[in-house]
């Protein structure tokens, strides 16, 4: 018991009586000065950079910005071209006339690499052909000719047929139609 207490007291007394090493205050103050000076240099290092350095830095930033913008625009263009080449319905419906649609489709295929020039030309002609067919099918199909129009056509091709020429005379034609109606009426009256 006594030895335990004695050991404890000696330890605590040793901790209590520990003396600071000689010159500790001086070393601490010196260390603080150095630490503060180093901190000041590190914190103001950017501000102390010469004007030329700032200029170079700004130029570099501008160059980076321009490159980034260029890359972005290139990417946008390629994305747009890809969309048009894939035949998106929006691109097709925007064009009211087929005559304007064909060159745009060709332009979408044109910027392929130079090695594929022949292929590009072939695709261009096929595309133009397809677009022409589409154009022709766009207007409504013609109405069937009337009887008179068909007669006129026949007359135009067969100038010497007197029967056809007589049919073009309204009086003759009216008489003939009246005869036909009379024959029909007669036929049905006989049946009754």
């Amino acid at each position: 018991m006594k030895s335990t207490d004695d050991a404890m007291e000696r330890i605590l007394r040793g901790l209590r009586e520990a003396e600071a090493p000689e010159g500790m205050e001086r070393r601490i103050l010196k260390g603080l000065e150095e630490g503060i000076a180093a901190e000041a240099v590190s914190s103001s290092g950017w501000l102390r950079m010469p004007v030329a350095g700032w200029g170079l830095g700004a130029a570099g930033l501008c160059a980076l910005l321009l490159v980034a913008i260029g890359m972005y625009r290139t990417k946008l263009d390629s994305a747009h071209r890809t969309g048009v080449a894939a035949g998106t319905p929006r691109a097709a419906t925007r064009q009211p006339e087929g005559e304007q649609k064909a060159p745009q489709r060709v332009a979408a295929i044109e910027p392929q690499p130079r090695l594929h020039v022949r292929r590009t030309v072939a695709v261009r002609s096929e595309t133009a052909l397809a677009s022409d067919e589409n154009v022709r099918s766009l207007p409504a199909p013609p109405m069937p000719l009337t009887e008179q129009e068909r007669l006129l056509l026949k007359v135009a091709h067969h100038h010497n047929d007197p029967e056809l020429v007589a049919m073009l005379n309204p009086a003759v034609r009216a008489g003939r139609e009246a005869e036909e109606q009379a024959e029909v009426a007669k036929f049905f009256s006989e049946k009754k």
Partner: peptide
């Protein structure tokens, strides 16, 4: 502050570390 409290801080640090050099570093 250094002159007034460095001794106390040294003893506090020494009580934990039991080493003079380490305790001085802690005070700094």
């Amino acid at each position: 502050l250094v002159s007034e409290h460095s001794g106390l801080l040294y003893r506090v640090a020494f009580s934990v570390l039991r080493n003079a050099a380490e305790a001085e570093d802690v005070v700094q």
